[in-house]
Design a binder for these strands. Sequence first.
DNA 1: CTTTGTGCAAACCCTTTGCAAGCAG
DNA 2: CTGCTTGCAAAGGGTTTGCACAAAG
Lengths: 164, 164
Amino acid sequence: MSDKSKAQSTTGATNKWFWDLLDDYLSKQALKQTRQRKIVVEEFLRLDRHVDAEDLFNIVRKKDAKIGLATVYRTLNLLKEAGLADQKSFRDGRSVFEVHRPDQHHDHFICVDCGKVVEFENEEIEALQEKVAEQLGFKLAGHRLDLYGRCVRRDCEVAGNYRP
Amino acid sequence: MSDKSKAQSTTGATNKWFWDLLDDYLSKQALKQTRQRKIVVEEFLRLDRHVDAEDLFNIVRKKDAKIGLATVYRTLNLLKEAGLADQKSFRDGRSVFEVHRPDQHHDHFICVDCGKVVEFENEEIEALQEKVAEQLGFKLAGHRLDLYGRCVRRDCEVAGNYRP
DNA sequence: CTTTGTGCAAACCCTTTGCAAGCAG
DNA sequence: CTGCTTGCAAAGGGTTTGCACAAAG
């Protein structure tokens, strides 16, 4: 568990790297920069947490009521193609997206009672993963680690709503 | 990476514990033992690997052409309720089921090119997970670890077909 | 201008559900 | 007999796609 909060800013200021990579990708693929894309990405970055398409859609439509859900999906998929976002599916059916940080990967702890998600990072585990991959004769490209359990909160009484 | 092959048999012989628990569950819940359920569970156990509902359906219908896909889904969900099977979703939309082994949990390595899945187990990682959970103030109940990478097989050229 | 992007709605895909008929207990 | 189960088909819920119009380069 290291200092995971240092590099992240809630403002868009430190996200220049993201926009740079995105611009790069767009021009290389001869894709276009549009108002809608800009809004979706801005909000995605501003939130800076895992969101599903509909979450983001509801936020984005406040900025521009005419943006469609399909555009949000298309933009998120674009980011995924560009390697700038990761897609995961925690619960069934619905999947969530989050900014892909090449340097600073984080894993998740999900409370099986209230569904709360806490992010964490552990270098020892990451190192062991590399080792395991090597032993198996694979070249590791990425991973996903979700821990499930119960958080020790008084207000966490919503038992049974979420089964991994 | 320990001796994970020792306890598993491909025949149904060592699966008595499973049937016992299932029978228990059924009678306690006043549910019924039916021909269809028996066939679905038999094949599920015989395969002894992660399968999606349609996979299993295609196998099961060879034993009984009249079994419906819905029944397969219902049976798998029953096993999940009973705590005898785990459900995971590797790729989008489709989820896979596998026998829940309380004693012997395994994680997965998924080739991002050919989609091949290899199971592994690493006690050090598991131990660290406990530690992390404790540090976060959680009580660990389970986990899911998927490693993504490329396998070193000559016949693995199916690049781009699978993105985690 | 040419080509990509957008909105809308319909199409898709996996999974669940309603219903009448079928069986286990 | 009672009520859980099944098959079928239709409905659901999230995601994608076809199409005509809009807009970026």
